[in-house]
């Protein structure tokens, strides 16, 4: 049974415990940042920042809302990055958990192409061309732990579990949240394993909150390879 996370942004307080927990578990270095006029920092995901709480101030129906969006890889059911890479040494899916995992071999991939294939604009490359992103804390999951970000959350905004359970929990949760926020929705629940619940138009939270129509996802060539089926799924040498 693969795993999923529900991120209910309606109870997220942007304490950013998840953002730090991610750095701590993965032992990622801090970035030298500057305050550029908002609490959000770093300004974007980077090769060493897999998780970032995005913060937006929006006037919605005459009321100020401060929208928080703990952005990270969605671990797609059918991941365009994986299809694009077409190289299981570099990008592969752990069938046990559903995690989409990047290795050091991503260095040999075309980083722009991989990043461009992601409908959520997640992968980031290092100076040497290696690509990284959230790894679902796959090592923790295999050792019976929850992802570090989920453990850190004080309000219970993040729930981790078997995909079926999370899907059913998510729809129950949506029904409840809708009583207060009629426009609440789940973001791409059928396509991804990190499912967001938002109260308002997802575009207000982040340009890439939902699979972006501007980003084509997989290219024509990739689609063709995919159509050819498993026969063609060979490992590139």
């Amino acid at each position: 049974m693969t795993k999923s996370i529900l991120i209910d942004t309606t109870v997220c307080t942007a304490c950013r415990g998840c953002q730090v927990a991610c750095k701590q578990w993965h032992d990622l270095p801090a970035e030298a940042t500057q305050n550029v006029g908002s609490f959000q920092n770093p300004q974007d995901l980077t090769f060493t920042t897999y998780k970032l709480v995005r913060m937006e101030e929006e006037m919605i129906q005459g009321r100020l809302e401060w929208l928080f969006f703990p952005d990270q890889c969605r671990h797609c059911e059918e991941a365009p990055c994986l299809e694009t890479a077409y190289d299981e040494q570099a990008i592969y899916r752990d069938p046990a958990t559903g995690a989409i995992l990047y290795t050091q071999a991503t260095r040999s991939l075309d980083a722009e192409e991989i990043a461009g294939s992601c409908p959520y604009n997640i992968p980031r490359k290092a100076a040497d061309g290696t690509i990284s992103k959230c790894d679902f804390c796959n090592d923790r999951i295999h050792n019976g732990l929850q992802p570090a970000c989920v453990t850190a959350c004080p309000t219970g905004a993040m729930t981790f579990g078997d995909r079926e359970e999370i899907l059913s929990f998510a729809s129950k949760r949506l029904a409840k949240v809708k009583q207060k926020f009629p426009k609440a929705m789940l973001l791409d629940p059928d396509e991804v394993n990190v499912i967001y619940l938002v109260a308002f138009d997802p575009a207000l939270y982040s340009e890439y909150a939902v699979a972006s129509s501007n980003r084509k996802g997989i290219t024509r060539a990739v689609a063709l390879r995919k159509m050819m089926g498993p026969l063609s799924k060979v490992v590139r040498v």
Partner: peptide
């Protein structure tokens, strides 16, 4: 603590 300074680097 660098991870925390990354989040709030400056007096504002």
């Amino acid at each position: 603590q660098e991870w925390l300074m990354e989040l709030q680097p400056n007096v504002f």
